[in-house]
Design a binder for these strands. Structure first.
Lengths: 248, 248
DNA sequence: ATCGAAACGGGTTGCCGGTTCCGATTCTAT
DNA sequence: ATAGAATCGGAACCGGCAACCCGTTTCGAT
């Protein structure tokens, strides 16, 4: 666990870094974690630098972009979720484990805006990290379904969507709604039992991702209203530069 | 300056406006509607001006801020929802009406980013407009609960939160999830029937007398002077027993 | 103690989008 | 037709932010 944390960025980094650099890197990461946790992706990078007692240049020395910093700050939490799910995969009553786990993930995530941003897909945490979480959750789901604790027509895609929905609900539940209420409601909807609604059938799997205008890679769903055109800040910048050059 | 502000107030506008101004106002509103619909609050104001074939200054002549423009562009849809709900309040089978209405609102809203932004509370639509919608929806809910088509421990706050959640789920359901699937799931969670989870109790709402102190269900408005505290005899008894136990 | 390289910091640049300003244009009352 | 007010258009302004740059400081091997 500690090792994993250390290796969150370049594996060779912590070893060969100068002492002050190593310290500053840790300070930045720490500050980033707490800042992102409180305010999500929206925190200005300068704010993080200020909290760390460091210049913005230093931040950029250690992390090539805000995006990378965010990833480093958030991914270990997701990895923790994943590990926990894996450990739970062979333990206890499948249904109980499943519902407890789901509730816990939601409870822990709601308070953490960064995790919300990551899990709600406003941001691609790390290639693989999110996918691994999904896989681990799928195992718990399947097991609970086999134990007849979860209705059989629910897929892992449904569950991920439901998870996001719970986050969004719990996040901005009105003043008159208790913590965890929406999660409880959602859990009930997963339980087998008397049902009226037949779920609409899912489409045959088919990718309809948009492509980055620069590198052709997959584009994450837009954060703001406007459709995202680029796969990340780097490509966006590149496009800007090229537009500027074209004007000159 | 103050006069300019005044003249941009929407209400009395169309009557005394110069012909070109009236036309431009309509163009702007039209462009705003379609732009916001496609991309939500995120659209730059310049984009709207361009679509309307108008300068940004003109937009600001008619609407004091982007916010006001958004409100003007969106509120009539919400009003439509509200009116529909009111019409349905005395028609047909309460349960069917309720679920159909809910699904329809979600279906219609998902395609409309502006409505999503408004209903999900990223933005205050218009003072009153949103509140009216809420009230109208509450009527349908109460009616469905009285007909035993919706579980009694669900409040209008819950429902609003659930509505937002469905929007967020349907909006970015993965490629492998069919349209309406999450809504169907959510509707199932509202149905009465075998349940394991007890919903966490809501905080003692200040002036919300419509909630049962025990089960959280809706309380019929008091006929006598004293406000009713429980949804029925069963809950009143239960409360008595618990108070007795507490004293012991 | 010294010195070169690594790291620092924060000033600077470029971009973006909302809002304002003002000279040019268009409408309408006369 | 004309004057003058209403309206228009879009350039300019402004605050915010990510990312870059470079003169200065610090580290640590010798």
């Amino acid at each position: 666990m500690a090792e994993r944390r250390l290796s969150s960025l370049p594996s060779q980094a912590s070893a060969s870094l100068r002492s002050d650099a190593r310290r500053n890197r840790a300070l930045v990461l720490q500050a980033a974690r707490s800042a992102f946790e409180e305010a999500g992706l929206g925190v200005p990078l300068g704010e993080i630098a200020r909290r760390a007692g460091v210049g913005t240049g230093t931040v950029y020395r250690h992390f090539p972009s805000k995006e990378a910093l965010f990833r480093a700050a958030v991914s270990d939490r997701i990895v923790l979720f994943t590990d926990t799910a894996r450990e739970l995969a062979h333990v206890g009553d499948p249904g109980t484990v499943f519902y407890r786990y789901l509730s816990a993930v939601i409870r822990l995530t709601v308070r953490n805006k960064a995790l919300c941003d990551a899990l709600e897909g406003r941001f691609e945490a790390s290639p693989g990290v999110e996918e691994a979480f999904r896989e681990a959750l799928a195992v718990l789901l399947r097991r609970a379904q086999q134990a007849d604790a979860v209705r059989k027509d629910v897929t892992i895609d449904d569950l991920m969507a439901l998870l996001m929905g719970c986050l969004s609900m719990e996040q901005r539940r009105g003043p008159g709604v208790a913590q965890g209420r929406m999660t409880a409601l959602a859990c009930d909807s997963l339980r087998p039992g008397r049902r009226v609604t037949k779920l609409p059938a899912n489409p045959p799997a088919e990718r309809n991702e948009t492509q980055c205008g620069v590198c052709g890679g997959a584009v994450a769903p837009a954060r703001t209203g406007r459709p995202a055109r680029y796969c990340g800040a780097a490509c966006r910048q590149k496009a800007h530069r090229e537009r500027a050059r074209a004007r000159a």
